[in-house]
């Protein structure tokens, strides 16, 4: 097994377009959970409506890409309102149940037969990115990068756009969290009744956060569609949300750069374990496992990481442990 090439591959995916997309979606989740304490277990639903919003606009209605982005975001807005109105007045667990169920039900609806003319059913949609790649300033098949870590021009273009969006969103979150609005939001995370007793309309604030974080998630979905040039309903399974949770907790919830660091670290780890598993498999060290099992093992590993992080390092990579421990409710 060539550990150096595994490391190079892992590093490449840590900075690659997929990591950028997940970082973006995790920023939305950070707004929800890290700052406001909303338990959103259905962030993938926002990504899905974003991706399909742009996909359907571009491929079925032949609209320009930017209009497609707008439609994707609009869908996310509607979804956030639908989820928020019944649940945000209730205890946190109701939102958790509703979002996890809604995320999965949306996927089932989008892959159903009767919407196939629109969504392509289980097959999804292709050829979505030509409008986006038309603006690619790089040579699409040339390779850019250092040493073993190179990207094609197409990927580099996606990376530039997505990481820029990540930076913009990081900036937006920073500005918001260092304002009186952010103070109210953090107050709601600590104790929403106390904030309500001071005359703040907690429901409206929570709704604003749900919408904003959902929009960022939808933007991530749009970029995913642009990156892959094709989308399929089954890539929006609930594990995407759980990956986002690992990313958020790994990086540090309630930290501006937490999701960004988390996404990089997570995809590095995922590719690294994958490389090592395959390497060990090819040397015959894993007698009981077939190569399809590696993917399952990785997902189990992600789950284990979630458990261990919560139990042993709830503050993530860049959080403050003392701050976490203060919270004895």
């Amino acid at each position: 097994m060539d550990i150096l090439s595994i490391l190079a591959d892992s590093t490449r995916s840590a900075f690659g377009p997929v990591a950028a997309v997940y970082a973006l979606a995790a920023i939305g989740l950070n707004l929800h959970f890290g700052y406001t304490g909303l338990l959103n277990f259905g962030q993938v639903g926002f990504m899905l409506v974003g991706a399909y919003g742009v996909g359907i606009s571009v491929s079925v209605f032949q609209l320009p890409v930017l209009v497609g982005f707008g439609i994707g975001l609009l869908c996310a807005l509607v979804l956030a309102l639908l989820l928020g109105i019944p649940t945000l007045r209730l205890r946190a667990d109701y939102l958790a149940i509703t979002t996890i169920a809604a995320g999965e039900v949306i996927r089932l609806i989008y892959r159903a037969d009767f919407v196939e003319p629109l969504t392509g059913g289980v097959f999804g949609m292709q050829n979505l990115a030509s409008g986006f790649r038309r603006f690619n300033p790089f040579e699409s098949s040339a390779r850019y990068g250092f040493g073993d870590i190179t990207y094609t021009g197409t990927h580099l273009w996606t990376m530039v756009v997505t990481w820029s969006l990540v930076l913009v969103m990081v900036g937006v979150v920073w500005l918001l969290m260092h304002s009186p609005w952010g103070r109210v939001i953090k107050g709601i995370r600590e104790d929403e009744e106390a904030v309500r007793s001071l005359g703040k309309d907690v429901f409206t604030y929570k709704m604003q956060v749900l919408v904003l974080g959902g929009l960022i998630g939808a933007l991530a979905g749009c970029m995913m569609a642009m990156h892959q040039a094709a989308i399929q309903p089954d890539q929006f399974k609930p594990q995407v949300t759980f990956f986002l949770w690992v990313i958020l907790l790994l990086g540090g919830a309630g930290r501006v750069f937490g999701p960004v660091l988390g996404a990089m670290a997570f995809w590095f780890l995922m590719d690294f374990t994958d490389g090592v598993l395959r390497g060990m498999g090819s040397m015959g060290w894993l007698p009981f496992l077939d190569s399809p099992d590696y993917g399952a093992l990785q997902l189990a590993f992600a789950g284990l990481m979630l458990v261990l992080l919560i139990v042993f390092r709830p503050q993530g990579l860049i959080g403050d442990r003392k701050e976490m421990l203060i919270n004895v409710k």
């Binding site: 958790a96 594990q239 399952a296 093992l297 990481m305 979630l306 139990v311």
Partner: peptide, 28 residues
Amino acid sequence: LRHRNVALIQMFIVSIGLALVLRHVILV
């Protein structure tokens, strides 16, 4: 976890992690 006073929200996340582990161990 309860005796360590882990907050409920954290417990939800742990159970999600356990679900992932259980599901994919079953798969393997």
